[in-house]
Each structure stands twice: as structure tokens, then as C-alpha cells.
Design a protein around this nucleic acid. Sequence first.
RNA 1: GUGACUAUCGUUCAACGGUUAGGACUGCGGUUUGUGGUACCGCUAAUCUGGGUUCGAUUCCCAGUAGUCACCCCA
Length: 471
Amino acid sequence: MAQKKVFHGAKKSGEKKGNDKKSVAKKNIAVKKAPAPSVNQEEMLLQTLRGMRDILPDEQPYWERVRKALAHASQEYGFRRIDLPTVEYAHLYLRTVGEGTDIVDKELYLFNTRGGDRVALRPEMTAGLCRAYIEHGMGVLSKPIKLFSIGPVFRYDRPQEGRYREHWQANFDMFGENDPILDAQTIQLAYRVVQQLGLKNIEFQVNSIGTPESRREYEKALTRYLEAQKNKLCQNCRERLVRNPMRILDCKEDKCIQLTFHAPQSLDYLDLESRDHFKHLLEYLDELELPYTINTRLVRGLDYYTKTVFEIRSTDKDGKNYSLGGGGRYDRLIESLGGEATPAIGFALGLDRIVLEMKRTQVKPYQEARPRVFLAQLGDMAKKKSLKLFSELEKNGILIAESFGRGSLKSQLRVANRLGVEVTIIIGQKEALDDTAIVKDMVSGTQETVTHERLVDAAKKILKTNQDLRV
RNA sequence: GUGACUAUCGUUCAACGGUUAGGACUGCGGUUUGUGGUACCGCUAAUCUGGGUUCGAUUCCCAGUAGUCACCCCA
């Protein structure tokens, strides 16, 4: 990675921006006192913020392929696009994602607006989606209501590769149906997308966490079980026992693996309905022959999930796992926000990670249509005519490359050659005077002078001949 | 939030406690006048920021910032 340049020409004295921040402080949401900026921000003009990044033109063909695949899949499965604000009232996330989750406690981008409102950049899309669902009375629409969305989400965590403070997600969600077949269909859709993107070695991990009540029961049981043998756990897991006991089941230490071998299973703590739901889901998945494994440790970092949760993972040859996306049911969420009780299921794909994975596995990016004709001009009069000629050709369906800013014919031809065009149209002083143009076949090197009327046909003829030769 | 490693032209890789910080790729221009490849020539362009040690720092030390990795967590 390139080191970012730092602008330091306009260094001013270390004047502070004033102390009026205090007056805005509200106490309904606890915020840590913001530390003073650690750098002279005037020097940081030319550096992206930590965890933020530019997606440059070179990378766009990968993103374009992703966008296209998402558009296709959403159409095939009947999802309608919705775009949501990136900023919402902070409370929306406290209520949905949940206080106590890392996403809210540690990673939420919190702000006070000038008007004094407590707002947050969205750390995920489901909350906003549910808000919109209720706000616009979508409950009256015929079920299931299928919505998808693409956009950036924000989490203030520590960046590394495939992990950014601003990253892009695609979300697919269905409202209004309880049937586990929708869970299966959701996973099927997720699989369809990554398949269309040419990703291999994809695996789903599925689990059911039942209701919040049954999950709490399970955690209690697990803690009770492990507490008894606490000192046999590794240091790390001893802390996990308090903070997040289910994580212990994921530990790589031998002693912890052995200890947890006979530990209680989350699936045994499901209520009857959830268990039945899960059983049906698995049957559907088997029927679809989707690559999945049951991962009883899979929890996900959001409070609103009920019953089904899943993750899409890519496995590389070293057996390393990358999570590309995940989702699950959230049957209680709409109701808990004050809407009518509405079951729902959805998932998010991490687009940055998908692009990363495409590069890693050398998937072909989307190919833009390339211009096959170059327009070169020479001299003032020709230059004047060139813009008009360009638009005439373009209207006739000929994609043109040019370098109007250049003077010499030689340098223009060099560009034409670099672009790999098959035809170059040249107008010079002479051609401009008698309304003709030179049509040069870049492959054979031959050229002829034609009138403007015949220009389009002449160019197309060469392109066609080349195409025939290729076949 | 914790720890570790790293930081030189747009990209990539050199170099040194001391002269104009070097190469490759890319870009721009040229090798006579209105014709592209290759070749040859030229030009542009960098030591992340702030302090310290030193006669002298890009090099050594400290801090900041950023990136990468592991943890935490997640997409």
C-alpha cells in the first residue's frame, strides 16, 4: 500500500477550534468524551481517514460485475430495490442491534447534529429497513415483501485487509412469512449470487439460536458447565466465560476443545417450534444440495436474530475461512420497533470482501465495451470539426476514442495503437477543407480517403472484416 | 480496544550517518517537415508528520499518523 501524502504547506499555529462542544452534550446516550484530535488536521488534507478508502477506476470492473450479478439475482427472485439513508437516529440501533453488542458499544459512529439530535451512521441496514417498512406502512402489501439494497455501512473498528470502517453491503430481506422454506430460499439466493460471480469453495454455516429466551437458557447452561472446570481453560477463554461463553466453543487450544467436547449443545435448548423450523430448513437445504455445515457456535453479533442464522464463507487452500456475508431471521424486530408483529428474514453480503475474494481466486472482472475506432485530428480547422464528427460517429453507434488535446499526429496514433483500436479516422487540414476523412485500417495499415457520407460505412466495414477474420 | 511488524517517485525495488537519493515500469516529449510496433534519447516525479541525538539524519531514538498481521469482533 502506498503511503499517503501529507499536506503541510498551510500549517497554521496550533489554534484551537473553540470549546463550545460541551454545550451540545446530551445524556440520553452515553458517549465517551471525545479526545482531542491527535494530529494537526490541516496536515491531513491529503490522507483518507483511517479505515476509509478510495475505490479507484482500476478496481471498478470487479465492482461492476458484482453490481450486475446483484441486479440479476434480485430480479430473478423478485426483490425490489430500496435505498435508505446512511444516517438515522442513534436510538434505532440501540434498540435493534442492541446495547451490549460490540457493534453498538464499540463501533457505532455517533454524532450530534447542529440541531442537537443524536444520530449515527448506519452500522448495518436491517434496522433502517424495518424503520422504513413501518414508516411507509408496507405491511399492507402482499406478502412476502421482498426488498434489496446496496450501499455503504460504517463501523468504527480496527481496519485490516477486507475490513474497513466504511464498507459496502448488499442486503436482501423478506417480510411477512414464517415458513422455513423462505429461510432456504434466502440461502439459495445468496448462493446464486456468489455462484454467478464465479466464486468457488463456498460453504454455508447454519445454526438456529431459537428465541432470545432459549438462547439465554443455553448460555446459562454452558456457563454452568464450564464454570466447574474453569481453571482448565486457557487464559483467553476464562475471560470469554464472562463476556461471551459461546466463543469458547470456537477456541483453537487443545485443552479447550477437549473440555467443550461434551458441553451442552445450543440446539438442545431450542423450543419446540424453533427446532421444528430448523429441521425443515435442513431438509430444504438437503433438497437443494447446497454446501452447508451446521455450526452450533454460530451466533452473530446482533441481538435481533431469532431461529435461523447463517454465514457464507469462502475457504482457501490453507483452510482459512473468510466470512463473505451472513444473515438470519428476525421475527420479533418489527414488533419490537412498534410495528405489527411481522416475521422477516434477510442477509447481507460484504461487497468489499467479495471483490477481494474475486481477485484472490482470479475471477474475471467485468469487461467494459472498448472503443475500436480512434479519431485523430491535425491542424486548427480539423480540430474545430472533430467534436462534431465525434458526435456523428457516436450517434451511429461507433464508440470513439480520441486524444483531442494532443497536437502531433504521431502521438495520437501512438495512443490509438496503445488502445488497440482497429480503425483510425484522420482529418487534417486538407480533409477538413473538402469534407473528407482518411480511414485507416490499423491492422493492415492500409488507408483510404472517403467523403463524410461514406465515413460510417467505411469504418464499419473494416470492423466487420476484422470480426469475420477472428471467427 | 490490546499486541507485533512496516512506511523512499503514480507503481515497484535499491542505497547511504555526509556531494545532484539510483534503477525498472508507467506517464509526457523527441529521433527533421501529416502516420502507430520494436529500438534509442530526454523530461516529470519520492525519503509520511513532529520532535530528539549528531557538525550533519532519508538512515539512529521517541511520539503521532497510516497500512498489514494476530487478538477482539465482524462483512
